[in-house]
Simulated scan of single mutants.
Amino acid sequence: MRFFSADQYVDRHYMNEREFHYRNALEEGNWSDWQQRFRQRLRDITGLEQLAKETDGLPLEAEIVETVQMDGYTREKGYIGTEPGLSIPFYLLLPSDGEGPYPLVLTPHGHSRRGKEIYVGNYETEQERSEGVDGDRDIALQAVQEGFATIAMDVRGFWEMGREEEYEQGKGNSCNPLQKRALMFGRTLIGERVHDMGRVIDYASTRPEIDSSRIVITGNSGGGTVSLFTAALDERIDICIPGSYFCTYRASLLAMDHCDCNFIPGLLQQGEMYDIVGLIAPRPFLAVNGERDEIYPSFGAREAYAHVERIYAAMGVADRCAIHFGDGGHRYYKEPVWPFVKRQLERLKR
């Protein structure tokens, strides 16, 4: 009996030339043209371009439903429209100290059942609190305590943006059914999530307390995915810090089982993950990975980062990219994040 060899299949196709390999820009010497064409192609294959046209002119219809004074900051809960009949639930955290308008940190979450709640430290159980704190997953709370305005939203497929069917069954997310439906309409969950982040930025620009000219995006795992693609496709993002995601696709998505929400039809005909980071350059980029991450292996992250270094060096901004490996597995590592953010924001002010 003979079986299908997925490894041989991947190896054969992976060796094909990618249309937007960054070496093309190096050889041609025109980064701007390469970025413009590649960004448009990604907008097309993710469905983001189609979604933008479908929602052009859609009002935000922002609604704040709760305001709570916390220790050192105010927490608002609200909703904004992202497409007809669908709203994004979010928390806005504003520091009580300092003087606004404050730079903004967006914190898309990963594959945790309660989504944004973990990132703002709104824990349901002591076990959830322990896991959140020990894994540095209270990212929105970290950001506001560092003096930033922060928006933590539910990512499409989770918690208030998940389906009732999965919630009632006790499942952690609705990624599989939502991705299948998105694909049937020429979309992807990644494209829809990037669109949602854009709507959040649109809303942030209406708030006088927020300096929407200085925007950071960082999240862990699936939140790292959203962070990277949002920064690549939305140039309003100034600093991108994906946690526990940066790698090569060959060493991660193609090497083991991953959630359906990670996949974009035809992506590897266009570029590898480090090529996508080329759409972020010359804006600051920090990859935060775990040395013992089993699903985004450190050897793949190192291989990908060697390419990113070449891209940033070729643009003359080698000091704007970095990678950090925490001594652990698949989790967030806050140690390098906020010093990097403050250093790069200070450079932006000059």
Rank of each mutant, 00 (worst) to 15 (best):
E126L: 15
S130M: 11
P89S: 07
N122I: 01
R113L: 08
V105E: 01
G132Y: 01
L141Y: 06
V120C: 10
E146T: 05
Q127A: 14
G172F: 04
N122E: 15
K116T: 00
M161Y: 06
I118W: 12
Q142W: 10
L106A: 04
G100E: 06
L141I: 03
L92G: 02
E166F: 05
Y102T: 11
M153F: 12
Y91G: 13
D97F: 09
V120N: 04
Y123L: 06
P177H: 04
S174T: 11
T107Q: 02
R113S: 06
W159D: 14
Y123W: 15
Y119N: 07
E164F: 08
N176H: 11
D97N: 12
T150F: 08
M153I: 11
P95S: 08
F158E: 00
V105D: 00
K116G: 01
T107A: 09
H111T: 15
P108R: 09
R163N: 02
G162M: 03
L106F: 05
E124N: 08
D134L: 14
Y91F: 15
G157K: 06
P95H: 04
P95I: 09
S130F: 15
D134H: 11
T107K: 03
K116V: 01
L106P: 02
G121L: 12
L93C: 10
L141N: 08
G98M: 02
K171H: 12
Y123V: 09
E146P: 02
S96P: 01
P84L: 12
A140E: 04
P89G: 08
A143M: 07
E160S: 09
R156N: 05
R156K: 10
Q142S: 10
E128N: 12
R163H: 00
F90A: 10
D138W: 10
A140T: 07
E128W: 03
C175Y: 08
R163V: 00
K116M: 11
Y102P: 07
M161G: 00
G135E: 14
E117T: 03
F158P: 00
F158A: 00
S87L: 13
L104P: 02
A149P: 04
L141D: 05
D134T: 14
L92K: 13
P95N: 09
G157L: 10
Q145C: 08
I88D: 04
N173M: 09
G147F: 04
F148Q: 00
E131P: 00
E168I: 10
E124M: 07
E165K: 11
S112A: 08
Y167V: 14
N176F: 14
Q145T: 09
L104D: 01
E117S: 11
G132H: 05
E128Y: 01
R114K: 13
A143C: 13
N173I: 06
T125G: 08
